[in-house]
Simulated scan of single mutants.
Amino acid sequence: MEQTVWAVDGSFFGQRISGIQRYSIELLSALDGLVSSGMVEVVTPPGVRAPVYQNIKTVTFGTRTGLAWQQWDYPAYLKYRGAKGLATCNVIPVFGFQGIAVVHDVCYRARPDFYTDLRGRLSAAWHRLQYRRIAHAAQHIITVSEFSKREITRYYGVAPERISVVYNAWQQMQRIAPDERIFAKVSQLRRGEYYFSMANLLKNKNFPWVLRAAKNKPDAVFAIAGGGSLTEEAKRLGLADLPNAVYLGYVSDGEAKALMHHCKAFLFPTLYEGFGIPPLEAVACGAPRILVSDTPCMREVYGDCAGYIDLKTNHGYVDDATSPKQDAALLLARYSWKKSAQALLDVLQQQK
């Protein structure tokens, strides 16, 4: 029987790396060691370079870039090649797609209150269109947690048997060397004596909670990494003059690893996630403790290996008595890109 060819939308290789792109990159790297030659191809727009794989073929196709490439050139390649699509970043072509799509979460549908300005509303409208299209057109859907699977079924009526869970993992952190120079650059940081969080202005990340925690614990240092207008947001909230809140701006991967390793605890008071990978990365870097929001997703992913923040009653307080019940090694053993790649391969083999 002729082998099904799966052609991956590789446009993410030209995008700034966030959790979605990281998932795609690491999953393909691990999948390369499992698939037979000719089974999987990565298709990229002009000027976007994919890695060199052993068994996965890479192809540059088309003349467009960005969203136009995704919507026109990528489906043209699928037709030309007679291949099925594998789209790993929440987006498929509106027309001409048959295959598997990854939906990382449906936050734009579940929490429209997070997207109230014009840009947010437009982004939410586009993503909700994509969710509906994927629910209708994708042969199969992959998501990153059982929680997210339930959300897709709840909001888009997709039968559970059409959805498979392929988790995130953490092994990419092993390739990063910690950059301890951050402690010389920022005099307020002393190893083992600060709380660390990675923030942005997305409402689900709940940056205000970290500021309130800093206000309520003035004798402790709160190190906050992230770009954008965090200080402007702090001014808007009336929390701009906290001497124990240290804004680090964007930090390198090596600096983040050092900061995670030496913190008192890594804070992740998220309001909504499909998986929530930063605390897992923090544990992989040696963080002695992670404190995450008490939500179904966080409970599923982190189990008894985290301390939990009840955001219904805790509006900004770090409880140093909140401790995990299980060792971090159990958490790390639960997730690996190799396991996830095998789960993806099982889906590819089933969906011929």
Score class of each variant (00 low, 15 high):
A265N: 06
G47H: 08
E146F: 01
N168Y: 11
T65N: 15
A137P: 00
L129P: 00
H262V: 00
D9A: 15
L239M: 12
L86N: 02
Q15F: 14
D241F: 01
Y308I: 09
L242N: 00
S197C: 15
N206T: 03
Q15M: 14
L331W: 00
A169Y: 06
V42C: 02
A343V: 09
S123R: 13
K57P: 01
V40Y: 05
V106N: 04
S323W: 02
A137D: 14
P324F: 00
S37E: 15
S293C: 03
D294R: 06
D219R: 03
V251N: 09
V221A: 04
P296R: 03
S197M: 10
T153I: 00
G276H: 05
S148D: 04
L331V: 03
S36A: 14
V246L: 07
K312Q: 15
N204A: 12
V42M: 03
N244R: 05
Q342D: 08
D310L: 10
M298Y: 00
Y108N: 08
T270E: 11
H127Y: 12
T88P: 10
P75N: 08
I100N: 10
Q342W: 01
L201E: 13
D219L: 05
T88G: 00
Y23G: 04
K205F: 04
T295N: 02
R81C: 13
G228P: 09
C297H: 01
F95T: 14
R150C: 00
F183G: 04
D105L: 11
Y302M: 08
Y23W: 02
A329R: 15
E26I: 05
E146P: 01
G286A: 06
F266T: 12
T65W: 07
N204F: 11
Q15W: 14
S164K: 07
P243S: 11
F97W: 02
V42Y: 03
C285Y: 08
Q70W: 00
L129S: 06
G99Y: 04
P45T: 01
L291P: 05
E2D: 07
I224Y: 05
S36G: 15
A282G: 03
A333F: 02
Y53T: 05
G99E: 07
L280I: 09
P93H: 01
Q342R: 13
N55K: 14
R162S: 13
V40E: 06
A76W: 08
Q15C: 03
N206E: 03
Y74K: 09
K149G: 10
K205R: 12
C263A: 11
L31Q: 09
